[in-house]
Each structure stands twice: as structure tokens, then as C-alpha cells.
């Protein structure tokens, strides 16, 4: 990490996710061979905090950038770090096709069920009845559809090798998430296919909660809809 102070709200999972990603790259001694792609969203400034070469992608397009970078530089680690609006709304096509082509990249997907940067609007992953600035009376699934389980969706694609969903609000969670990210970087580097790590995270500003309360709310509401654990390992779906 650089020594810059993180711009994220107090208690936001982004900071932890950034740190464990960088720790993994340190452990793999891969800093000199890694190119990261930042999205548009809260983590648009990821390149201010991650001390590696990074490119800032247009909203939703990071998987396309990563595709080109990896194909042009096959000896490098290439990853995207994206939020749910970036990856599951505007970037759906780029996400699905990068996965379908089985690009040997890592996608780190922070799912906090809301658009954080722009002030808490509803995202494709916003839960039913969950309030946001564009669903003030709660998300009405009748008119705005159900939360998009993009991770389960891409797990079906043969090009995807490893899919897992983690959380970083508890010590155990952080340890598991770090192990998963490390596995993702190792396996994509061995050209086994796309490795996808979703991190369900809190957004206390968007959810309008205290940080600690938001983590409790997350466990009670987000986890039932986005269950933690491995979804696909070594190219095989884990049967639930």
C-alpha cells in the first residue's frame, strides 16, 4: 500500500480488501509483475492506495482492459477491482464475456448492494425492500427486479476456474478472504482460467448505519442472499 490515507468512509470494507490484496501480492513477490485495473466507483482512487502500476477504466469496462493487458503481457498478473454497480450493471457484458473467454485474470468484486461513490443509489445487487436514494421506499422487486446474483451467473461459464464469496468484517473472514485472493492470483497465473473473488461488504454511509451496526445488518440481510463460501473450485461447481 502507499502511505496515502484511505479516502473511504470509516468502517468501509474497501480498505481491508485493498490491504489484503496488496499483502497477497507482496507474499507472491508479484508487485513488479502486476497490473491492476481500477473501476469507476468508490474504489476509483484505488491507484492512490495500491502501490502497483494501475490503469483507471471507464465505468464497467475494467474486464475489457484486463483482457487486453493479459493477452499482450501473458507473463504478468492482471486483476480488476470493481464494485457492484461497475461490474453487475453497466459492465455486465464486459464481465460475462471476459469470464466466458476464460481470461486468465483475477476479478475482485466488492458487493455492498449499493452505489457508494455517487451517494447511495440502488444497484443491481440491492436487496428486496432495501432502501437507497433511488429506492426510498425500498427496492420493489415487482418493478425493479430481483437482486442480480452475478457471481453465481458467471460461475456457470466454463472459462471460469475459481469462484468464491468472502467477507472482511471479521478476523476469520479476513484470513479466509486473503487465502482466497492468493489462490485466485496463483491459479490465474497458471492460466487455469478466470478467478473471481466476491467480497460482500458494508456501506455504512449508503445504508445510513453505524459501521458496527452495518456489519451486523450485513450478516442478517446480505449473507442469506449472498451466502459466503466457495462456489466453484478447480472448474467444478460446488453443489450446495
Amino acid at each position: 500500500m502507499t502511505d496515502k490515507e484511505l479516502s473511504y468512509c470509516p468502517g468501509c470494507g474497501h480498505g481491508t480488501a485493498h490491504r489484503i490484496t496488496m499483502e497477497v501480492l507482496d507474499d507472491l513477490d508479484a508487485i513488479k509483475d502486476t497490473i491492476g485495473i481500477a473501476p469507476v466507483g468508490c474504489s476509483v482512487l484505488a491507484y492512490e492506495f495500491m502501490n502497483i502500476d494501475m490503469q483507471q477504466a471507464a465505468h464497467g469496462r475494467a474486464p475489457a482492459l484486463a483482457t487486453a493487458v493479459k493477452r499482450l503481457w501473458p507473463s504478468k498478473h492482471v486483476f480488476t477491482y470493481q464494485g457492484d454497480g461497475d461490474l453487475a450493471a453497466i459492465g455486465t457484458a464486459e464481465t460475462i464475456h471476459a469470464c466466458n473467454r476464460g481470461e486468465n485474470i483475477v476479478i475482485i468484486f466488492i458487493n455492498n448492494g449499493i452505489y457508494g461513490m455517487t451517494g447511495g443509489q440502488m444497484a443491481p445487487t440491492t436487496l428486496p425492500q432495501m432502501k437507497s436514494s433511488t429506492s426510498p421506499n425500498g427496492r420493489d422487486t415487482g418493478t425493479m427486479g430481483h437482486p442480480l446474483k452475478i457471481t453465481e451467473l458467471i460461475a456457470q461459464l466454463p472459462g471460469v476456474h475459481f469462484v468464491t464469496r468472502q467477507a472482511v468484517h471479521t478476523p476469520g473472514g479476513v484470513r479466509k478472504a486473503k487465502k482466497a485472493i492468493k489462490k485466485a492470483f496463483e491459479q490465474s497465473f497458471e492460466n487455469k482460467g478466470l478467478c473471481f473473488v466476491e467480497i460482500v461488504s458494508n456501506c455504512n454511509s449508503g445504508w445510513k448505519m453505524e459501521p458496527r451496526a452495518s456489519n451486523v445488518w450485513m450478516e442478517e440481510n446480505m449473507f442469506p442472499y449472498y451466502p459466503l463460501g466457495d462456489i466453484k473450485v478447480n472448474g467444478e461447481l460446488i453443489s450446495k
Binding site: 500500500m1 490515507e5 484511505l6 473511504y8 470509516p10 468502517g11 468501509c12 470494507g13 474497501h14 480498505g15 481491508t16 490491504r19 472482511v168 468484517h169 471479521t170 478476523p171 479476513v174 484470513r175
Partner: peptide, 12 residues
């Protein structure tokens, strides 16, 4: 010295 607090601290 279990490091739990350090692990979860978003700002390290």
C-alpha cells in the same frame, strides 16, 4: 497479541 483488531481495521 492475537492481531484480530489489526486484521479487521479498514485503515490499517
Amino acid at each position: 497479541g492475537c492481531t484480530n483488531c489489526a486484521l479487521v481495521c479498514p485503515d490499517g
